[in-house]
Every structure is written in structure tokens, then in C-alpha cells.
């Protein structure tokens, strides 16, 4: 596979064209917004956290396939997880994307075993200028969870 085909995996294009959990939440929820000013990508999310568990999530945004697919996969993955599991996932995702310094946690012999579909985003590592696209949803999520931390 060429680097480009590696980057634009089918699962990424699917999430880009059919983003999951698109919308907003009503009722009590956390909200955060993120933007990449240099390219104009936007991402906003609502998450409902009950007893330390993410019970519902919805997102809105516009931008490139990488930023939107990363957000869509993230939203799908975090619902049902505890806040500490989400934080752990965020850390592993950032390691995988080399946003955080450290070894890539993904096991090449068992694809999908560590980060599920999100591992499809590994191709972005070869395109350093696009890493911030993949990271936008995650830094927005961290902003929202920080509010949760401050409230509890």
C-alpha cells in the first residue's frame, strides 16, 4: 500500500462521510470546543458523565477527513468507558500519533487489539503536518474532561 492509501484507509473515509454521534446533547453535560486556527478545522463535543462514566456523547465539526474521522471514532470509543479509561485511551492515542513522547503502544502482530479502529489513523504518523488534525478532537475531549475534574 502506498503511504497515501495507508493514510486514507477505508474506515477513515467511512467515518469522514458518515460521522457517528453527530449532534448535540440536551440535559446536563460537559461541552468543549476546539479549533486549529492555521487550517480552520473545528470540533465541538458534548459529553455526559455520570458516576465517573461517559454515558453519552455527541459532536459537531467541520474539517478534513483526518480531523473528522478521528473525532467520530473517538466518540464511538469513549461511550461506556470510565473517565480514567478515557484518559488512558487518550494517552495511548497520543503516543500512537507521536503527540506524546514514547513508544507506539500498538501491537503490529495483533492489529486493533490496543486502540481498535483508531489504529487506522497510524498512517498519519508519516505526515507530520497532519498530526494536529488527528489530535484536535482529543485535545477538545481533554478540555471537557478537565472541566469534569474541576467540578468534582
Amino acid at each position: 500500500m502506498s503511504q497515501l492509501d495507508e493514510l486514507y484507509r477505508e474506515v477513515i473515509l467511512d467515518h469522514y462521510r458518515n460521522p457517528r454521534r453527530r449532534g448535540t446533547l440536551s440535559g446536563d453535560h460537559l461541552h468543549a470546543e476546539g479549533v486549529n486556527p492555521s487550517c480552520g478545522d473545528e470540533f465541538s463535543l458534548d459529553i455526559e458523565v455520570r458516576d465517573g462514566v461517559v454515558v453519552d456523547a455527541a459532536m459537531q465539526g467541520q474539517g478534513c477527513s483526518i480531523s473528522q474521522a478521528s473525532g467520530s471514532m473517538m466518540m464511538n470509543t469513549i461511550v461506556g468507558k470510565s473517565v480514567s479509561d478515557v484518559e488512558d485511551l487518550t494517552y495511548k492515542f497520543k503516543l500512537m500519533m507521536s503527540i506524546e513522547e514514547g513508544d507506539n503502544p500498538v501491537d503490529p502482530d495483533r492489529p486493533g487489539s490496543v486502540l481498535g479502529d483508531l489504529e487506522a489513523l497510524q498512517g498519519v504518523r508519516k505526515f507530520p503536518v497532519r498530526i494536529k488534525c488527528a489530535g484536535l478532537a482529543w485535545s477538545t475531549l481533554s478540555d471537557a474532561l478537565q472541566q469534569a475534574g474541576q467540578e468534582s
Binding site: 497515501l4 478545522d41 474539517g63 483526518i66 503536518v129
Partner: peptide, 9 residues
Amino acid sequence: DIHPHDIAT
């Protein structure tokens, strides 16, 4: 529906 950033890459 290809985003301009994807085109540029």
C-alpha cells in the same frame, strides 16, 4: 467532498 487539506496532502 474531498477536504482541501486532504487534496493538499
